[in-house]
């Protein structure tokens, strides 16, 4: 149902910008359903708190984002590690905005993952350009596969190939973007 909602958004091509000191904060449960969304997020995404709470986080997903980035994101955080990613999101009115997303698992006293937390900050312009170029490459790879799962695998393989070519881990690679 929420997936339909994402697809129903008509892209305007207009970009919105996060303030330099602003922080988008969201929390989700283990399934990625939003349990908390701060005011900055509600404002830039133009969704009400009622619309967001309980909704899947991909409510703001932009079609330009490669599937493999989210696969990598979920693979990483579900194994208990943090991840940084440049992400372009789409607001309810079809405008888009770039964020530097930092997603971390939340642990209970016993060290079990009980949810995820995401802080999003304003990215550097140059980083956005680099990310956009990289994602174009990954998307091109993914478009060669009809199955979404297959496409995500292929995109990830491409990303890993680029990483090993550069002799870097994703973390190192990310901070050079």
């Amino acid at each position: 149902m929420q997936g339909n909602l994402v697809r129903s958004v008509r892209l305007t091509g207009r970009e919105r910008f996060l303030g330099a000191d602003e922080l988008i904060v969201t929390k989700t449960d283990l399934q990625g359903r939003i349990t908390y969304a701060n005011r900055v997020f509600r404002r830039i995404s133009e969704y009400s708190e009622a619309e967001l709470l309980g909704a899947p986080h991909n409510i703001v997903r932009h079609p330009d984002m490669p599937r493999c980035v989210f696969k990598l994101l979920w693979d990483t955080i579900s194994s208990g590690r943090e991840i940084f990613a440049y992400v372009v999101n789409v607001a309810s009115n079809g405008d888009h905005y770039w964020v530097l997303a930092h997603v971390t698992p939340t642990f209970d006293d016993k060290g079990a993952i009980i949810g995820y937390h995401s802080n999003r900050r304003m990215p550097e312009r140059s980083s956005i350009d680099n990310a956009r170029a990289l994602y174009a490459q990954l998307n091109a790879e993914e478009k060669r596969h009809s199955s979404p799962a297959r496409a995500a695998e292929a995109g990830l393989a491409k990303l890993n190939a680029l990483l090993s070519q550069a002799g870097q881990t994703y973390e190192q690679f990310f901070f050079t973007l």
């Binding site: 000191d21 943090e82 530097l100 930092h102 802080n119 900050r121 304003m122 973390e171 190192q172 901070f175």
Partner: peptide, 25 residues
Amino acid sequence: RESRVSLDAASQGKFFRRFVLKGLR
């Protein structure tokens, strides 16, 4: 979260993982 992750990274020798200052005041 930042202090925990960045210090954890530093303890593992991943010094490229700095405390992200943006958004903090």
